[in-house]
Design a binder for these strands. Structure first.
Lengths: 226, 226
DNA sequence: GAGATAGTTCGGTGGGGGCCGAAGTGTTGT
DNA sequence: ACAACACTTCGGCCCCCACCGAACTATCTC
């Protein structure tokens, strides 16, 4: 296969609107699920699945399986550079401010299923670990006795249930683990109840209220500089 | 039209093998005719004409008419950067050495119809003008009496004919005029007869022989540093 | 185990677009 | 005037591929 033929096949992948939407949705470095990408591309999940298969086969995307989800991200910074250079030729606006700010909000704090992710989620996990309340291992986590008391006091005692108690979940924007499982869900629920955070419409992003800023600092020693 | 849609339509233009061949053929900054590009893309002139129309409509190429030819070139350096970034993702080899050296050879000296172009062609025009043998204007040129004698002595007296005697022709790699018309053809013919230059197979490039290097220096004061 | 959800595969449909032959326009050179 | 040449436009053919509905697998929750 010649040089230009390879180039053409790569460019052809970018040339479909659905795939272009998928790629631009991933341009800020986050990893998204197939369903989220289908929504971003305005196509059904089947169609998106086909596109995602093509993009990963061409090594434009890398995929990682996590539970019943598959997270996709740009395979390398080179791909992002390519997209930017095409956008530079295509249009006057480099990137719309709204898109970027939405991405920034998601990086700061967002939900991941029913628990917290983003800088806030990672900071919570760091705080509990650093203070000796929680021990996170590769595929699980245990509360210490002090940690259990601490969380009961906070009002985030995890309810009983068959679901796994605590599990580290790789945070795709921070690339470090946050807390999932019943424990993670209880923490998120309690923070919502306290109105430290608020869900946003049509987005997984959550906003940190002024009460939350104070509370996270006083209770967990968290200062988010985002 | 949204941001990503514009990007997709640009990328779709690169996504066709014929158009990709056309664009890569122009990557070294030269301007080529529609027919040459059709050959490079391995399609018929009609097909190439359609592709060229699309590429110029999208402002990826700029076209300039010269006589019965239309010269196409990349519309801006941004386009070249885009192509390079796609190639960077597409393949391990940035550019094959042979392609580049061919382009370099063409820049040094080549034929343009029946006269000389490239650095050599421009240098010849410069030399004759500087020494007061030739006066080039916007759309023509005249030999001085001394210039006529000089060329007769050199053995490049232009034959009579209906064709225009001398005309400046914009050199697409040097972006400065070289000499066309009967005068340009006579110069080229004489240089070939003297074996100062030799045609190459399957290319418009010409090579300068050792005799040529000496002759161009002694007779015209030309030193090509290419 | 039952139900829900994420993702994939398969088959059929439809539209878009690349390709060339033929014919038309404009320019060049004798 | 005439032939040669560069280039374009038109018309029709045909293939490729994006798309979705339906059905299937895998995982999670209860």
């Amino acid at each position: 296969m010649s040089n230009t033929t390879r180039m053409a096949s790569i460019a052809a992948l970018l040339g479909d609107p659905a795939r272009a939407n998928i790629l631009t949705a991933l341009m800020d470095g986050r990893a998204l699920t197939a369903k989220e990408l289908a929504f971003a591309a305005h196509v059904t999940p089947q169609t998106a699945s086909g596109h995602l298969a093509q993009l990963t086969a061409a090594s434009l995307l890398s995929a990682e399986k996590q539970g019943r989800h598959r997270y996709f991200r740009l395979a390398s910074p080179l791909v992002g550079q390519m997209l930017e250079s095409v956008m530079a030729v295509a249009g006057p606006e480099p990137t719309t401010p709204t898109t970027w700010r939405g991405g920034e909000a998601l990086r700061t704090a967002r939900t991941c299923y029913d628990h917290l992710a983003g800088r806030l989620g990672v900071a919570l996990a760091d705080s509990l670990t650093r203070t000796g309340h929680l021990a996170l291992s590769q595929d699980g986590g245990e509360l210490t006795e002090r940690g259990h008391a601490f969380l009961c006091d906070f009002g985030a005692e995890p309810p009983p249930g068959k679901r796994v108690f605590c599990r580290p979940c790789l945070d795709w924007s921070e690339r470090r683990p946050h807390i999932a499982g019943r424990l993670g869900a209880a923490l998120a629920t309690r923070c919502l109840d306290l109105k430290w955070i608020e869900r946003q419409r049509d987005s997984r992003a959550v906003t940190i209220t002024p009460a939350g800023t104070q509370g996270f600092t006083e209770t967990f020693g968290i200062e988010l500089t985002g």
